[in-house]
Amino acid sequence: MNATKQEMIDKLRKDLLGWEGFRPVAPEERQSFGLGPIENAFPNRVFPTGALHEFISTRPEFTAAIGGFIAGIMQTLLENGGVCVWVSYTRRIYPPALKRFGVDPDRIIFIDVTREKDVLWVTEEALKCQGIAAVICETRLLSFMESRRLQLAIEQSQVTGFILRKDVKVFNTTACTARWTVKPLRSKLRPGMPGVGHPRWQVDLLKVKNGQPGSWTLEWKNNAFVHQPLPQEQIQNPDIDRRYA
């Protein structure tokens, strides 16, 4: 009796995830983004592709860090071919730098619109197009309604969308699957070594649908993310399995 109840609850949970736009991932098409424990924070323990990710930046330095982090994720998304579209109205991204994160800059199409309101229109059109691996949208404003439109477009096409919000003053509610911030941290070198080390970030998952928010420290080393465990982090990020137990 108990077993059947458990099965029913499990099935309901799975259905709920499906209705909320999370596609169950078959084991063979499961992609690992090398994010380590961060992937465990998401439902089904997999980084959601075909979803909308929102990145909040309050300073240009953070925007650079987010750019690097997104490029690292894009490396995996672009593995199967395809192109990526980068939409912005005040773009400062320097294409050759993306090569360091494993992305060929010539596989990104940059669309630099002159009016801010066109950014979301172009983003929506791009998200509707199935031939695209990922869409990155740099914008300042994103209302709930606009994010919902983007989310609906994604549910049809299963394209991964990244919204990079610069100069955010008000944290409004959006329909995004996850809300992140990425801040640069002091790079670590062996004591006594001069110079600047590998890019090192504090990645905060502020909100995630059906998942567990948390904070992690990551480093980008040899074309891959390297997770740097910190003692207090393990307390903040309890094992996700406990919720289902």
Binding site: I109, E125, I132
Partner: peptide, 23 residues
């Protein structure tokens, strides 16, 4: 598909706003 997307975008925001970079 991508070409059609870029046609649409180019018609709205102008073709010269679409960039692709080569080394």
């Amino acid at each position: 598909e991508v070409a059609e997307l870029l046609d649409n975008v180019g018609a709205r925001v102008g073709k010269d706003h679409i960039h692709r970079y080569l080394p």
